[in-house]
């Protein structure tokens, strides 16, 4: 009785699975769908390594049941790059050295992606507030903030009509 059919769209692709009531969204993503870019860190709603977008909203997927996400549109780190390469934010993390061990990075990228979608030009304070639920034990956050700023600047530049330097 405690089994349920769940259909989720992950990075644009629909998946259906029969799952236990108690299956967490992060386990659906990692174990059932084999998308291991989403990490499990603390498993206690603190660290944010498991952050994914649920209908565009950054969410700690260790604290959501898979059945709660039935019908939702989920975004994970695997969906950020496209045929043209990395997203502006991913490029920012590379250019600004926004990671060392990389464990928190998928969560940081998803939170950062949602922030930039809602606020194209966030201040440093707004960036720090937005990522306050994502813990990084390597960088001290300075380069993560710079990475988000890099992406904001790049996206603003890409939108400018006079910009013709991109390939």
């Amino acid at each position: 009785m405690a089994r349920h059919n769940v259909t989720v769209t992950v990075n644009g692709e629909a998946h259906s699975r029969e799952v236990d009531s108690r299956l967490l969204l992060v386990h659906l993503i990692r174990d059932e769908l084999a998308l291991t870019g989403t990490h499990i860190g603390c498993d206690t709603t603190h660290c944010g390594a498991c952050t994914v977008l649920v209908d565009g909203v950054p969410t700690k997927s260790c604290t959501v049941l898979a059945v709660q996400a039935d019908g939702a549109d989920i975004g994970t780190v695997e969906g950020l790059a496209d045929a043209n390469g990395m997203s502006a934010l991913q490029e920012g993390f590379m250019q600004e050295h926004g990671l060392q061990c990389g464990f928190c990075t998928p969560g940081m990228l998803m939170t950062g992606t949602a922030l930039l979608a809602a606020n194209a030009n966030p201040s440093e304070a707004e960036i720090r507030e937005a990522i306050s639920g994502n813990l990084c034990r390597c960088t001290g956050y300075v380069n993560i903030v710079k990475a988000v700023e890099y992406a904001a600047a790049k996206m603003a530049g890409a939108d400018a009509p006079a910009d013709g330097e991109d390939n």
Partner: peptide, 9 residues
């Protein structure tokens, strides 16, 4: 309360 990600839900 908690952090912005938790507050989203």
């Amino acid at each position: 309360i908690a952090d912005p990600l938790v507050r989203n839900r």
